[in-house]
């Protein structure tokens, strides 16, 4: 069934890669081909945020994206967030705030926080709650996550003025 699969090439965390995908595979399945398991298919319906990835700098649910459609796109996952062995300030803020227990939802929260701070560099709690309402943490670390997002905003601001 040659028309049910295709070869695609795309940017993955800054590197040009190619892959052969089945048309019915989603992006979480595609990332598994590259050994990337930070985006996890959990609810499978775009509701929980565990499979959050950025495609052309826009946060989407990897489980609702057909792998074939990322051909030519720029895909960023949690694995691409650290730079030169240094964690991103958002990741650092989550650690310092203890904003997780099991960590299953954390990659999604970190990537959504990046989107949030790109749009609203100095968010109030309502904006944070509203923006992250589509990410679920079953350990219930929400108060710490709120704290982590506020801390991440501070870290970004001081990094920008340093």
């Amino acid at each position: 069934m040659s028309n049910a699969r295709r070869k695609i090439s795309f940017q993955l965390n800054g590197a040009t890669v190619s892959a052969t995908v089945e048309n019915h595979h989603n992006v979480v399945e595609l990332l598994e081909q590259f050994g990337l398991r930070g985006a996890r298919e959990s609810c499978g319906q775009g509701l929980c945020g565990c499979c959050t990835i950025l495609i052309d700098d826009v946060a989407v649910s990897g489980c609702l994206q057909l792998a074939a459609m990322v051909d030519g796109k720029n895909v960023c996952t949690i694995e691409g967030m650290q730079k030169n062995g240094e964690l991103d300030p958002i990741q650092q803020a989550f650690i310092e705030s203890g904003a997780f227990q099991c960590g299953f939802c954390t990659p999604g929260f970190v990537l959504m926080t990046q989107q949030l701070l790109d749009r609203y560099p100095d968010p109030d709690d309502d904006q944070i709650r509203s923006y992250l309402s589509g990410n679920l943490c079953r350990c219930g670390a929400y108060p710490e996550i709120l704290k982590a997002v506020r801390l991440a905003a501070e870290k970004r601001k001081s990094a920008a003025t340093a």
Binding site: G46, Q65, S133, G134
Partner: peptide, 12 residues
């Protein structure tokens, strides 16, 4: 829009 699904769904 602010209360329609979530940010990711609205992006897609």
């Amino acid at each position: 829009m602010r209360r329609l699904a979530n940010v990711r769904v609205r992006n897609q």
